[in-house]
Design a protein around this nucleic acid. Structure first.
Length: 276
DNA sequence: CAAGCTACCTGGCCGC
DNA sequence: TGCGGCCAGGTAGCTT
């Protein structure tokens, strides 16, 4: 699933493939991918040029001339790849941007969960899903004091708190399980009950894990691929996600898998302390 | 407003 | 072999 390191890797690999290209034509094969009116989406983006691609959290921000930004979220399985326009349409390809240079960008998404939202540049933090997001890891805004204060007001469990993107954005199910294991915090711990030294350790692990995973070009466990169709490298470094039933690499206890608010959650029942 | 629940989707896997 | 049921999970939108 693309979490922040994967989306950043997509941004980096996709940019050289499309930067500076002008859209000649857009084909929308599954209109629900487009937030708001697909016809207006096509009309506004036709003949526009991609200036660059930015990112906030797990959202890609395609910047066009004429103050247009396409906010794209890959959700679980969304992928972009560049093809020749005469390539037969794949079963799960839903949107195609044909460029004036004779190449085409296709959006592929088996589960059709991804969304593209066209807004005026500069309004994206108020008009799209980005408005609900807290700061990104490894930024000045995401400092230790902020994180301690924010957690101290959260009544729900720490797993859900880190998944909901409002205190810190960019972590998904995989990295939340990893950072909680590294921090020796049980996923069902009450966020506000975690001791200060453990919160500091969690803070450091969030920043470090996201940085290392980004350097490794993300994690491929199911279907994630970058814009060149290549897998990530971080899956070989996963300690708990996907390792339920195996021994904890720290203490040897068998890792358990439970459901936390409907999400599969793997943890070490010995290492990870439950704070209530 | 915080928190919790479910819909959105399809493919893969399991049991029968 | 085929089929029903469950699981995977990020976010929007709803209810409480």
């Amino acid at each position: 699933m693309p979490e922040m390191p994967e989306v950043e890797t997509v941004r980096r690999t996709l940019t050289p493939l499309v930067k500076g290209k002008t859209i000649a034509k857009i084909n929308i094969w599954y209109p629900k991918i487009i937030v708001n009116d697909p016809a207006e989406f096509v009309k506004k983006l036709t003949n526009k040029r991609i200036l660059k691609i930015d990112r906030y959290g797990k959202y890609l921000l395609f910047r066009f001339n004429d103050d247009l930004t396409m906010v794209s979220h890959l959700r679980m399985e969304g992928k972009y790849h560049l093809v020749s326009p005469d390539t037969p349409k794949g079963k799960h390809e839903h949107v195609e941007f044909i460029f004036t240079d004779g190449t085409a960008l296709r959006y592929d998404d088996v589960r059709k969960f991804g969304r593209m939202h066209l807004v005026e540049t500069g309004t994206e933090r108020k008009t799209t899903g980005i408005r609900h997001l807290g700061p990104e890891p490894n930024t000045a805004e995401f400092n230790l004091k902020y994180f301690v204060d924010a957690l101290s007001q959260k009544k729900k469990n720490i797993k859900n708190t880190l998944l909901d993107q409002t205190i810190v954005c960019g972590l998904g199910n995989i990295y939340v399980d990893e950072v909680l294991w590294k921090s020796k915090i049980h996923p069902l711990s009450s966020a506000k009950a975690i001791p200060a030294d453990k919160v500091k350790n969690l803070y450091q692990n969030i920043n470090h894990t996201i940085a290392i995973a980004t350097k490794e070009r993300g994690t491929t466990v199911h279907t994630y691929l970058d814009a060149n169709g290549e897998i990530g490298g971080y899956q070989k470094m996963l300690q708990v996600y996907g390792h339920a039933g195996e021994e904890c690499s720290s203490c040897g206890t068998i890792l358990e898998k439970i459901k936390v608010n409907g999400r599969g959650t793997t943890f070490c029942p010995h290492c990870q302390v439950l704070y209530k």
